[in-house]
Design a protein around this nucleic acid. Sequence first.
DNA 1: CCAAGGCCTGAATG
DNA 2: ACATTCAGGCCTT
Length: 280
Amino acid sequence: MQNNCIINVENSINSGQVFLWRKNGKNWYGVNGQDILKITDSGNIKSYQNVKADFFRKKDNIAKIIKSISKDKVTKKAVKQYLGLRILEQDPFQCLISFIVSSNSNIQKIKNSLEDISKKFGVKVKFENQEFFLFPKPERLANASIDEIKSCGVGYRARFIKEAAKITVKEQIDFEYLKRCSYHEAKKEICQIPGVGNKVSDCILLFSLNKLESFPLDRWMIRILEKYYSDKFHLETKTITEKQYEMLHEKIVNHFGPFAGYAQQFLFKMERENYQKKWL
DNA sequence: CCAAGGCCTGAATG
DNA sequence: ACATTCAGGCCTT
Protein backbone atom coordinates (compact mmCIF):
# COMPACT_ATOMS: atom_id res chain seq x y z
CA MET A 1 0.00 0.00 0.00
CA GLN A 2 2.68 2.49 1.02
CA ASN A 3 4.91 1.29 -1.80
CA ASN A 4 2.29 2.23 -4.33
CA CYS A 5 2.60 5.88 -3.35
CA ILE A 6 6.22 6.21 -4.39
CA ILE A 7 6.88 8.16 -7.56
CA ASN A 8 9.77 7.13 -9.74
CA VAL A 9 10.76 10.33 -11.50
CA GLU A 10 13.32 8.74 -13.80
CA ASN A 11 10.97 6.05 -15.08
CA SER A 12 8.11 8.49 -15.51
CA ILE A 13 10.12 10.94 -17.59
CA ASN A 14 11.85 8.19 -19.52
CA SER A 15 8.74 6.52 -20.82
CA GLY A 16 8.02 8.33 -24.07
CA GLN A 17 5.58 10.85 -22.67
CA VAL A 18 7.76 13.96 -22.62
CA PHE A 19 10.73 15.11 -24.65
CA LEU A 20 12.01 18.48 -23.46
CA TRP A 21 13.64 17.20 -20.30
CA ARG A 22 17.24 16.98 -19.16
CA LYS A 23 19.00 15.82 -16.06
CA ASN A 24 21.46 18.04 -14.27
CA GLY A 25 23.09 16.31 -11.36
CA LYS A 26 20.33 14.81 -9.27
CA ASN A 27 17.61 17.06 -10.66
CA TRP A 28 15.45 16.87 -13.75
CA TYR A 29 14.54 20.08 -15.57
CA GLY A 30 11.85 20.29 -18.20
CA VAL A 31 9.79 22.61 -20.34
CA ASN A 32 6.06 22.46 -19.73
CA GLY A 33 4.31 25.05 -21.88
CA GLN A 34 5.07 28.50 -20.51
CA ASP A 35 6.63 27.00 -17.41
CA ILE A 36 9.87 25.29 -16.46
CA LEU A 37 9.74 22.53 -13.88
CA LYS A 38 12.51 21.27 -11.67
CA ILE A 39 12.08 17.91 -10.05
CA THR A 40 14.40 16.87 -7.28
CA ASP A 41 15.37 13.28 -6.70
CA SER A 42 12.94 13.18 -3.82
CA GLY A 43 10.14 14.08 -6.24
CA ASN A 44 9.52 17.66 -5.16
CA ILE A 45 8.54 20.05 -7.94
CA LYS A 46 9.67 23.63 -8.25
CA SER A 47 8.00 25.77 -10.90
CA TYR A 48 9.59 28.72 -12.66
CA GLN A 49 6.19 30.43 -12.85
CA ASN A 50 5.30 29.33 -9.33
CA VAL A 51 2.40 27.37 -10.71
CA LYS A 52 1.01 24.52 -8.69
CA ALA A 53 0.52 21.92 -11.36
CA ASP A 54 -0.25 18.28 -10.63
CA PHE A 55 2.41 17.07 -13.04
CA PHE A 56 2.53 13.60 -11.52
CA ARG A 57 -1.23 13.30 -11.21
CA LYS A 58 -1.17 12.85 -7.45
CA LYS A 59 -4.91 13.28 -7.64
CA ASP A 60 -5.12 9.74 -9.01
CA ASN A 61 -5.66 6.97 -6.52
CA ILE A 62 -2.69 5.01 -7.75
CA ALA A 63 -3.23 2.04 -5.45
CA LYS A 64 -6.73 1.64 -6.82
CA ILE A 65 -5.55 2.11 -10.39
CA ILE A 66 -2.79 -0.45 -10.11
CA LYS A 67 -5.20 -2.93 -8.63
CA SER A 68 -7.64 -2.18 -11.42
CA ILE A 69 -5.22 -2.66 -14.32
CA SER A 70 -3.49 -5.76 -12.92
CA LYS A 71 -5.71 -8.13 -14.85
CA ASP A 72 -3.12 -10.60 -16.05
CA LYS A 73 0.42 -11.84 -15.44
CA VAL A 74 2.00 -9.51 -17.96
CA THR A 75 0.65 -6.29 -16.50
CA LYS A 76 1.27 -7.54 -12.98
CA LYS A 77 4.91 -8.05 -13.84
CA ALA A 78 5.25 -4.70 -15.62
CA VAL A 79 3.62 -2.85 -12.74
CA LYS A 80 5.84 -4.55 -10.20
CA GLN A 81 8.96 -3.96 -12.24
CA TYR A 82 8.30 -0.26 -12.85
CA LEU A 83 6.46 0.66 -9.69
CA GLY A 84 6.38 4.43 -9.41
CA LEU A 85 5.92 5.05 -13.13
CA ARG A 86 3.22 7.66 -13.54
CA ILE A 87 1.18 9.17 -16.30
CA LEU A 88 2.21 12.82 -16.47
CA GLU A 89 -0.17 15.69 -16.97
CA GLN A 90 1.41 18.03 -19.49
CA ASP A 91 0.62 21.34 -21.07
CA PRO A 92 -1.96 20.45 -23.77
CA PHE A 93 -0.67 22.65 -26.58
CA GLN A 94 2.90 21.45 -26.18
CA CYS A 95 1.60 17.90 -26.00
CA LEU A 96 -0.42 18.40 -29.18
CA ILE A 97 2.56 19.70 -31.13
CA SER A 98 4.89 17.10 -29.61
CA PHE A 99 2.83 14.18 -30.82
CA ILE A 100 2.17 15.68 -34.25
CA VAL A 101 5.96 15.80 -34.50
CA SER A 102 6.22 12.23 -33.18
CA SER A 103 4.32 10.61 -36.00
CA ASN A 104 6.45 8.38 -38.19
CA SER A 105 9.50 9.31 -36.13
CA ASN A 106 11.54 8.29 -33.12
CA ILE A 107 12.37 9.67 -29.70
CA GLN A 108 15.77 11.16 -30.50
CA LYS A 109 14.50 12.98 -33.54
CA ILE A 110 11.34 14.18 -31.80
CA LYS A 111 13.47 15.59 -29.00
CA ASN A 112 15.79 17.37 -31.44
CA SER A 113 12.92 18.87 -33.41
CA LEU A 114 11.09 20.07 -30.31
CA GLU A 115 14.27 21.61 -28.92
CA ASP A 116 14.78 23.43 -32.21
CA ILE A 117 11.17 24.63 -32.16
CA SER A 118 11.56 25.96 -28.64
CA LYS A 119 14.85 27.67 -29.45
CA LYS A 120 13.52 29.24 -32.61
CA PHE A 121 10.08 30.35 -31.45
CA GLY A 122 10.11 30.22 -27.66
CA VAL A 123 11.10 32.83 -25.11
CA LYS A 124 14.48 32.44 -23.47
CA VAL A 125 14.43 32.43 -19.68
CA LYS A 126 16.85 31.83 -16.84
CA PHE A 127 15.93 29.47 -14.06
CA GLU A 128 18.34 28.54 -11.31
CA ASN A 129 21.23 29.91 -13.32
CA GLN A 130 20.40 27.78 -16.35
CA GLU A 131 19.10 28.83 -19.73
CA PHE A 132 15.79 27.48 -21.03
CA PHE A 133 13.45 28.20 -23.88
CA LEU A 134 9.77 28.09 -23.06
CA PHE A 135 7.55 26.24 -25.49
CA PRO A 136 6.27 28.67 -28.13
CA LYS A 137 2.82 30.09 -27.69
CA PRO A 138 0.21 29.03 -30.27
CA GLU A 139 0.19 32.56 -31.74
CA ARG A 140 3.89 32.37 -32.50
CA LEU A 141 3.65 29.07 -34.37
CA ALA A 142 0.45 30.12 -36.11
CA ASN A 143 2.28 33.14 -37.53
CA ALA A 144 5.47 31.33 -38.45
CA SER A 145 6.11 30.40 -42.07
CA ILE A 146 6.10 26.75 -43.13
CA ASP A 147 9.74 27.03 -44.11
CA GLU A 148 10.73 28.43 -40.72
CA ILE A 149 9.02 25.49 -39.05
CA LYS A 150 10.59 23.09 -41.52
CA SER A 151 14.03 24.33 -40.49
CA CYS A 152 13.43 22.48 -37.22
CA GLY A 153 13.64 19.17 -39.08
CA VAL A 154 9.96 18.29 -39.00
CA GLY A 155 9.53 17.91 -42.76
CA TYR A 156 5.99 17.47 -44.02
CA ARG A 157 4.65 17.86 -40.48
CA ALA A 158 5.40 21.61 -40.63
CA ARG A 159 2.05 22.46 -42.19
CA PHE A 160 0.26 20.33 -39.60
CA ILE A 161 2.02 22.24 -36.83
CA LYS A 162 1.08 25.61 -38.26
CA GLU A 163 -2.49 24.51 -38.82
CA ALA A 164 -2.80 23.04 -35.31
CA ALA A 165 -1.50 26.30 -33.86
CA LYS A 166 -3.96 28.32 -35.94
CA ILE A 167 -6.86 26.17 -34.81
CA THR A 168 -5.78 26.64 -31.20
CA VAL A 169 -5.49 30.41 -31.60
CA LYS A 170 -8.91 30.62 -33.22
CA GLU A 171 -10.26 28.70 -30.22
CA GLN A 172 -11.77 26.11 -32.49
CA ILE A 173 -10.36 23.77 -29.92
CA ASP A 174 -10.85 24.31 -26.20
CA PHE A 175 -8.47 22.29 -24.10
CA GLU A 176 -10.27 23.11 -20.85
CA TYR A 177 -13.50 21.77 -22.29
CA LEU A 178 -11.76 18.68 -23.64
CA LYS A 179 -10.36 17.97 -20.17
CA ARG A 180 -13.89 17.79 -18.82
CA CYS A 181 -15.78 15.94 -21.56
CA SER A 182 -15.86 12.24 -22.37
CA TYR A 183 -13.09 10.30 -24.06
CA HIS A 184 -15.06 9.75 -27.25
CA GLU A 185 -16.18 13.34 -27.50
CA ALA A 186 -12.67 14.68 -26.91
CA LYS A 187 -11.22 12.21 -29.37
CA LYS A 188 -13.67 13.19 -32.08
CA GLU A 189 -12.78 16.85 -31.59
CA ILE A 190 -9.05 16.48 -31.54
CA CYS A 191 -8.94 14.17 -34.56
CA GLN A 192 -10.20 17.13 -36.62
CA ILE A 193 -6.74 18.65 -36.37
CA PRO A 194 -4.56 17.80 -39.37
CA GLY A 195 -1.73 15.45 -38.50
CA VAL A 196 -3.73 14.02 -35.60
CA GLY A 197 -5.01 10.50 -36.16
CA ASN A 198 -5.92 7.65 -33.84
CA LYS A 199 -2.58 7.12 -32.19
CA VAL A 200 -1.51 10.74 -31.86
CA SER A 201 -4.88 11.74 -30.46
CA ASP A 202 -4.75 8.99 -27.85
CA CYS A 203 -1.36 10.26 -26.69
CA ILE A 204 -2.66 13.81 -26.35
CA LEU A 205 -5.77 12.63 -24.52
CA LEU A 206 -3.82 10.45 -22.11
CA PHE A 207 -0.89 12.75 -21.42
CA SER A 208 -2.62 16.11 -21.23
CA LEU A 209 -6.40 15.84 -21.23
CA ASN A 210 -7.26 13.51 -18.39
CA LYS A 211 -8.47 10.58 -20.46
CA LEU A 212 -7.10 7.59 -18.62
CA GLU A 213 -8.95 5.03 -20.75
CA SER A 214 -6.98 6.25 -23.73
CA PHE A 215 -4.62 3.53 -24.95
CA PRO A 216 -2.28 4.72 -27.75
CA LEU A 217 -1.69 1.89 -30.20
CA ASP A 218 1.64 2.44 -31.88
CA ARG A 219 3.89 -0.14 -33.49
CA TRP A 220 5.28 -1.13 -30.11
CA MET A 221 1.94 -1.67 -28.49
CA ILE A 222 0.72 -3.71 -31.44
CA ARG A 223 3.83 -5.84 -31.14
CA ILE A 224 3.20 -6.22 -27.40
CA LEU A 225 -0.39 -7.27 -27.99
CA GLU A 226 0.72 -9.82 -30.57
CA LYS A 227 3.41 -11.16 -28.27
CA TYR A 228 1.57 -11.41 -24.95
CA TYR A 229 -2.11 -11.10 -25.75
CA SER A 230 -2.62 -12.98 -29.01
CA ASP A 231 -5.29 -15.07 -27.30
CA LYS A 232 -7.26 -12.05 -26.08
CA PHE A 233 -6.92 -9.68 -29.02
CA HIS A 234 -6.40 -11.44 -32.30
CA LEU A 235 -4.67 -9.18 -34.80
CA GLU A 236 -4.63 -10.48 -38.33
CA THR A 237 -3.72 -7.59 -40.55
CA LYS A 238 -0.46 -5.70 -40.48
CA THR A 239 -1.89 -2.25 -40.93
CA ILE A 240 -4.59 -1.27 -38.49
CA THR A 241 -7.47 0.55 -40.13
CA GLU A 242 -9.48 3.18 -38.33
CA LYS A 243 -12.34 0.80 -37.68
CA GLN A 244 -10.03 -1.93 -36.39
CA TYR A 245 -8.30 0.54 -34.11
CA GLU A 246 -11.63 1.52 -32.64
CA MET A 247 -12.75 -2.05 -32.09
CA LEU A 248 -9.43 -3.05 -30.62
CA HIS A 249 -9.55 -0.14 -28.20
CA GLU A 250 -12.98 -1.26 -27.06
CA LYS A 251 -11.71 -4.76 -26.34
CA ILE A 252 -8.73 -3.31 -24.51
CA VAL A 253 -10.89 -1.16 -22.24
CA ASN A 254 -13.08 -4.19 -21.60
CA HIS A 255 -10.02 -6.08 -20.46
CA PHE A 256 -7.95 -3.45 -18.61
CA GLY A 257 -10.77 -1.23 -17.42
CA PRO A 258 -11.20 2.54 -17.21
CA PHE A 259 -7.52 3.16 -16.40
CA ALA A 260 -6.23 1.22 -19.40
CA GLY A 261 -3.87 4.07 -20.25
CA TYR A 262 -1.80 3.29 -17.18
CA ALA A 263 -1.53 -0.33 -18.30
CA GLN A 264 -0.34 0.86 -21.69
CA GLN A 265 2.37 2.98 -20.10
CA PHE A 266 3.71 0.14 -17.95
CA LEU A 267 3.68 -2.32 -20.85
CA PHE A 268 5.33 0.13 -23.22
CA LYS A 269 8.03 0.95 -20.68
CA MET A 270 8.69 -2.72 -19.98
CA GLU A 271 9.01 -3.81 -23.57
CA ARG A 272 11.21 -0.89 -24.61
CA GLU A 273 13.49 -1.66 -21.68
CA ASN A 274 13.52 -5.31 -22.72
CA TYR A 275 14.87 -4.23 -26.07
CA GLN A 276 17.17 -1.67 -24.43
CA LYS A 277 15.77 1.19 -26.42
CA LYS A 278 17.12 4.62 -25.60
CA TRP A 279 15.13 7.36 -23.92
CA LEU A 280 16.00 11.02 -23.50
C1' DC B 1 -14.88 0.54 -45.65
C1' DC B 2 -10.16 -1.27 -47.13
C1' DA B 3 -5.54 -1.41 -49.30
C1' DA B 4 -1.62 0.79 -51.15
C1' DG B 5 1.56 4.38 -51.77
C1' DG B 6 3.79 8.73 -50.57
C1' DC B 7 5.89 11.62 -47.27
C1' DC B 8 10.67 14.70 -44.34
C1' DT B 9 14.60 13.17 -41.92
C1' DG B 10 18.60 10.92 -39.95
C1' DA B 11 20.41 6.87 -37.77
C1' DA B 12 21.06 2.14 -38.63
C1' DT B 13 21.90 -1.52 -41.64
C1' DG B 14 23.67 -3.93 -45.97
C1' DA C 1 31.58 5.23 -49.36
C1' DC C 2 26.70 4.78 -51.09
C1' DA C 3 22.01 2.80 -51.26
C1' DT C 4 18.20 1.04 -48.79
C1' DT C 5 15.58 0.48 -44.81
C1' DC C 6 13.18 1.88 -40.98
C1' DA C 7 11.20 4.62 -37.15
C1' DG C 8 5.80 6.15 -31.31
C1' DG C 9 1.47 7.55 -38.45
C1' DC C 10 -1.36 10.20 -41.29
C1' DC C 11 -3.48 11.54 -45.52
C1' DT C 12 -4.93 10.85 -50.23
C1' DT C 13 -6.25 8.03 -53.93
